[in-house]
């Protein structure tokens, strides 16, 4: 007989949950953490643990709820902000995700977390997703002609579907597969709209300029665009989370090999501003550049 759960402490249940998690038993872990929370609803780590399990189970709304509970108990719960951002990205809610991701990043830096580079990547991911959404809106708005033409395609395909439905209503032909014919009409319309968008995109010189990130915005260790540049004594800038990874291994300046400590790093605010503005305009492609 397993011990009666009423006799198990929240800590025991948490350990049991962790064990399930390690074995890849997400549902078991979810159950144990839930029982632990029922006993001790004030321990934020129980909520972040359960959020991680629910991330595995793709239950993103629940992840966000658990993260919010964790944050309400402890405002500095870095993992709570971090996972909320990840879940919101999965739900295509980039603006909210960005807010959580930026807080997570600040907490990760303040807490010297080894996850800082991963958190910084989530910030970029949120910026990229937001850019893509805004870009879509902008294109749609700029091209009212495009919008009208897309309406025409839509109206035409809807008219065909209505026609088919009427036929289906009157028809006694059991062999004919009306549903897949309707699917074909919808798919055709979608392809037509994509093609139309491509044609308009090519005609727009603004969006046809070369997509390159200038070298001075690129971190010379990770080769990616910087989001939080810091400058060393010799005047060279690196992304904060990346140079911190290096300093954990070796307290030297990567270029001069002189001693360099984390305390010697200074934020490069002007460069940060340039990076932020560049990402505002180009995040959609610059993040993966």
């Amino acid at each position: 007989m397993p011990p009666n759960i009423l006799e198990m402490s929240a800590e025991d249940l948490k350990q049991a949950g962790n064990k399930c998690f390690q074995n890849g038993d997400w549902l078991g872990a979810d159950k144990k953490y839930s029982q632990a929370i029922a006993i001790d609803p004030t321990n934020f780590a129980l909520f972040t643990n359960r959020a991680l399990v629910r991330m595995k189970l793709l239950r993103y709304e629940d992840v966000i709820n658990d993260c919010m509970s964790a944050i309400n108990i402890n405002r500095d719960a870095m993992k709570g902000h971090y996972m909320a951002a990840q879940a919101l990205i999965q739900l295509s809610r980039p603006s909210e995700a960005l807010g959580f991701a930026m807080t997570a990043y600040q907490l990760a830096i303040a807490q010297h977390s080894k996850s800082a580079t991963d958190v910084a990547n989530v910030v970029l991911e949120a910026k990229k997703q937001r850019w893509k959404k805004l870009e879509r809106n902008r294109i749609d708005k700029d091209n009212s002609t495009l919008k009208q033409m897309k309406e025409l395609i839509k109206t035409e395909s809807e008219r065909k579907i209505v026609e088919l439905r009427e036929l289906q209503w009157d028809s006694s032909d059991k062999e004919r597969d009306f549903e897949s014919e309707i699917d074909v009409i919808r798919e055709d319309a979608r392809v037509q709209m994509d093609e139309l968008e491509n044609v308009f995109a090519r005609a727009d010189p603004q969006r046809y300029k070369p997509r390159e990130v200038p070298d001075y915005l690129i971190d010379s260790i990770s080769f990616s665009i910087m989001t939080d540049p810091v400058v060393t004594k010799n005047g060279h800038s690196y992304d904060r989370s990346v140079i911190m990874d290096h300093l954990r291994r070796s307290n030297t300046d990567p270029l001069t090999r002189e001693p360099l400590r984390q305390e010697d790093l200074r934020p490069n605010l002007a460069l940060k501003q340039v990076c932020t503005e560049f990402l505002e305009e180009n995040a959609g492609w610059a993040v993966d550049y």
Binding site: T117, D118, I221, S222, F223, S224, D245
Partner: peptide
């Protein structure tokens, strides 16, 4: 980490 991305770019 950024190993993959960096190596892709180096390549």
């Amino acid at each position: 980490m950024f190993a993959q991305k960096r190596l892709q770019k180096e390549l």
